[in-house]
Design a protein around this nucleic acid. Sequence first.
DNA 1: TTGTAAGCGTTATCAC
DNA 2: GTGATAACGCTTACAA
Lengths: 333, 333
Amino acid sequence: MARPTMEDVAKRAGVSRALVSLVMRGSPKVSEQRRTAVLRAAEELGYSPHAMARSLASRTSTVLGVMVSDLHNAFFAEVVDGLDSVAREQGFELIINTGGRSPARERRALDSLLSFRPAGLALLSPVVPTAAISTAADHLPIVLVARSSRVSTVDTVNDDGEQGVGLAVDHLVSLGHRDIVHLDGGEGSQAGPRRRGYVSAMARHGLDPRVVDSEYTDTAGARAVQELRGGGRMPTAVISCNDFNAVGAISALEEAGLGVPGDVSVVGYDNTSLAALRHVSLTTVDQPRNEMGRLAAEALLQRVRGERTDPVRHLLHPSLVVRSTTAPPGGAS
Amino acid sequence: MARPTMEDVAKRAGVSRALVSLVMRGSPKVSEQRRTAVLRAAEELGYSPHAMARSLASRTSTVLGVMVSDLHNAFFAEVVDGLDSVAREQGFELIINTGGRSPARERRALDSLLSFRPAGLALLSPVVPTAAISTAADHLPIVLVARSSRVSTVDTVNDDGEQGVGLAVDHLVSLGHRDIVHLDGGEGSQAGPRRRGYVSAMARHGLDPRVVDSEYTDTAGARAVQELRGGGRMPTAVISCNDFNAVGAISALEEAGLGVPGDVSVVGYDNTSLAALRHVSLTTVDQPRNEMGRLAAEALLQRVRGERTDPVRHLLHPSLVVRSTTAPPGGAS
DNA sequence: TTGTAAGCGTTATCAC
DNA sequence: GTGATAACGCTTACAA
């Protein structure tokens, strides 16, 4: 059960521990003969280097910590993919931990990650208080994804939610819609910019904004539509705060006998895999998630290498993906 | 930037390093006075213990490694939740890594996890070769989730796919269906048991099985339905290998002008959050994912504590969740 | 090119 | 109760 150590390999190869260390790290100043001897001994013993001991001795780390606030949301999976590919390219590896969208669990996840002394930390849509983040930022580089912050020592990567919802409004207006409602994300992350984007885009087109309180879930989307029906005037188009909400809205509309997009057009946000399902085929706003992950990793590694100390704030351009849930108002179903 | 060490805390509190260590580990044999002094010093310095150094010195680990084959599949998120809660209860923490369903990436993820010398390893639906797994199993406890294995040194946790699909067949037969097709998962994990369950359940009811090759994606499900239409006889019911496949099948059926469940009933597998969306409302087979995670963690920790060396093979009972995509054949749409 | 020796931050074993 | 001191597995000057 006990794993072999460098000492074991050294003994078997008849060399010193230090030499094994050099071979393991691919140093050029080792004779070919010794190198193969060491490598063979390691192979025979099934030796693999002890990352923790290495990091302890070298006072360096090749680990980036990632805190994913919610593993259930596929949004983060692609951000992690982006982080992973850049990290790997540059010789770093990821360790992931999850916060379950609870500040308490997130705090523990953060501490756990920190206890491994990673070179840097990426927090994906964290809900922990800013204070905890800025304290941690005193000790290592931190990048926030899908959460903005004014802390001057952390980098941030976000999509421009204002612009994204603006694209959705423009699209609907160009189709001829004038009565467009926004189903709001409430306290949810990034809900603010999306709402602001809606309001200002409507104003730009000289239209009256109508915001209905809702949340980032499909039942909330359905409920919002029911409220809308109770309230009297039905809009010709709905812009949801995210894809889940949009799907809930669609099913409530259909239950009410309203066709999508025949009677009401619906636009989502995030372009999750759900939106791409042919059964759903939702027009939605795409965030460049993979790119966000890549930029986050790069921001982290720049700081790790000491290339930069000023904070960087990436604001990426979202794009509209037109599918089958939007059409001119009053068109055939 | 450099983090404070135990030495720093000791100095500030005016005690020895060993005493700080005792306090950090909550030893009872420390005077109340010194304890609070140490704790305060640690707080002021922002000290947090160095997990790697601790593990190195104590020759123990309180870390469980988790390799998630595919972060995009929400199935695993709940398994991780189960693992996490048990691990936490027993004073362990998780570090997660992802394999992206590629054997090469998975190997790297495995090595990375191993390099932290965790107390045990949970592999969620891994695709790495058995050899790699059994080699690793020589050095630490390993549990496989959603992947069976005959390796005598690893534990496994699976749902009984045969039984699960049997439930689906029974349900459809009790509704009056006799012409039931299975859309097969091909090489996918757990596709074999599901197919066998279908065949034997059909035989039990004296019905002819009909298996159509497919895959675990919605486009594959749609394609299989198109083949079925081209082939002539349409069944009255379809059992998909998983929920994604089922949703694809539904949309292809609807595009063909066939109502679900009016003309054709559809059953999925996994009870993912997708199936629960009201817009989908899919009848499906539920795996007790959280429970699977909990059992996996418990199996691991039993071995870690040396309480057991014989392998354990958990085979959990799935259950049927009846929603809106199944009805008697020939019924109204 | 190779070996020796001194750490890295912690725990464990003793004495006091 | 408290404090030295020797590990843990590895890296890294520095010497040889």
